[in-house]
Design a protein around this nucleic acid. Structure first.
Lengths: 324, 324
DNA sequence: TTGTATGCGTTATCAT
DNA sequence: ATGATAACGCATACAA
């Protein structure tokens, strides 16, 4: 049996409420004999008392628990993000209950770990989630990292894709790129991002060809497929632009395996700055999403109870690396 | 205010206990008028009733929650693992409370999210954790993925490193490798693994040189440092053997950036088969830890309440790929 | 300075 | 077939 306030009280022959007052730290506030206080503290320590969260929660105490919904655990952008999130949230004294999905629709059943609990907030990571997910989470503030959909009641931190696109256009021009290929994809969010890039590139006078990956290919595979099916060594574009690093990774893998040299013969760009992008050779030119500061801001807002709905666009600096 | 059994009872003018019986599914078992049953169900649905986990837990119902302790979130072996774990655990009807650390000692405070909760089990992922972590988790069965330390009361699934080492030795011999470099490292667990490999390689008649990375370098950086500081283009070893893929990734990055061709001039091997190892070019020859089946077995055992202490050695097949 | 009583939401037991 | 009551562990208002 686990140690409760009652077991402590019984042991030293006082009442439960006295023990409670001491343990909840308001001993002096209310007035408790110093000696009693000491005895309670010592006994609690000695017996290994740990407060029962269920009981506290039932009494209405905030559980200091944050729910996390992760769309695609296979994309290391998200799993890295969860790592940071976990660390930052925890150092602010919260714990995390995580629910994740890869490549499938979410149903209500899936969210029950979050619905059943008293949560201080929910953080949704990953963009390919539609509105019905959020309708179930009405009783709790929802923060979202990624692109939201119109009319949703979340506090959304989104990459400033427009600015990124225009920065990319200038950079490619500066590097004498004239012909570009884009990898298109089933994900509506990535479509949107790559479409913004296409517009910016064409606006800057570049020629853009879009390659649509077959349905069912995941990110890396889509990039790999594009490289093996559409990169003709004798008619290469100057650059391939990708919506995320994982796709770029696939392009680079496909290109290198066909002995296409990067970046001499072909430049490749991504988005997200996942760890691998720095770890492969050549490292990928990409945009850094400032995930740490986003998460820090979110945790800070959770602490302050600042839940004002809205979208904030976050600047993602271009990291010029060897792939481009 | 959230919907409770009481609010449902009030609305349709019956007692709470009746509502409870219907909602907990034992309506027929005890005897409830079909019509009443229906009305309760419909009202609950309509009002959006969700059982209060805290109350259920307080009553002693298993919370169907599994605690997860992750040592190094930056190593994608672990973050991938968390993804699988999350998925498998969840599809068996459990939720996960995750606690993570990177590069620092764990103190009791850190574990409080786990200690406070009623957990069905704890799964510890990552090996560089000492005994005092587990002492605090005496009241709950602990499963461990990775190497345990002697005398610890956990149910441990460990890679069969001995078998892997001997497989590696045969493979390298088969490939006419005579001189090998090993990257050594501060982590005691990785030290142990690489030491086992060294023994096997020398036993097979290979010459092995160990390079010790400076303290403070993390996995990738240790590999990178080794490649840039110790690979002399005019005196290369035939192969570099690494304790994990992340270190191998660093070696490969360092080698490629110095125009050393892999695998013609230098072979590189890793361990873990993280996703990147397949995604970079050339892909890394490595050992696959069967994480999915390990996690599945653990979840199955949690369900059955089979908590018999012990160590199980798991076969990790060698995946022959282009880096070697 | 300390103790008693009450309620959070759910459920098991006993009573009607 | 349905209702009343008590208990889980904690925290508070109130009484002593």
């Amino acid at each position: 049996m686990r140690v409760t306030q009652k077991s402590i009280a019984d042991k030293i022959g006082v009442s439960v409420s006295l023990v409670c007052r001491v343990l909840s730290g308001r001993a002096d506030e209310i007035g408790v004999a110093e000696e009693t206080r000491k005895r309670v503290m010592e006994t609690a320590e000695e017996m290994g008392y740990v407060p029962n969260l269920a009981a506290q929660t039932l009494r209405g105490k905030p559980s200091r628990t944050v729910g996390v919904v992760v769309y695609d655990f296979q994309d290391s952008f998200f799993s890295d993000l969860v790592g940071h999130l976990q660390r930052i949230v925890h150092s602010a004294g919260y714990s995390t209950v995580i629910v994740g999905f890869t490549d499938r629709e979410i149903d209500t059943q899936d969210l029950s770990p979050l619905l059943q609990r008293a949560l201080d907030a929910v953080i949704v990571v990953g963009s390919d989630l539609t509105g019905n997910v959020f309708e179930r989470l009405k009783h709790v503030p929802v923060f979202r990292i990624g692109v939201g959909f119109p009319g949703e009641s979340t506090i959304c931190y989104t990459a400033d894709e427009e600015r990124a696109a225009s920065e990319l256009a200038s950079y490619l021009k500066e590097r004498q790129v004239a012909n570009v290929m884009c990898v298109r994809h089933v994900s509506p969010i990535l479509e949107r991002r790559i479409e913004g890039m296409r517009r910016a590139l064409e606006g800057a006078g570049l020629r853009v060809e879009s390659i649509v990956a077959p349905k069912g290919l995941r990110n890396f595979e889509a990039g790999f497929w594009m490289a093996t099916e559409h990169l003709k060594p004798n008619a290469l574009p100057d650059a391939v632009v990708c919506a995320i690093d994982l796709i770029a990774l696939g392009v680079i893998h496909g290109a290198l395996s066909r002995r296409i040299r990067i970046p001499d013969q072909l430049k490749v760009t991504g988005f997200d700055d996942i760890a691998v992008s720095r770890q492969i050779y050549p490292p990928i030119t990409t945009f850094a999403q400032p995930v740490v500061s986003i998460v820090e801001r979110i945790v800070e807002r959770i602490g302050k109870g600042d839940f004002e709905i809205g979208v904030e666009y976050v600047y993602c600096p271009l990291l010029r690396r060897l792939s481009c």
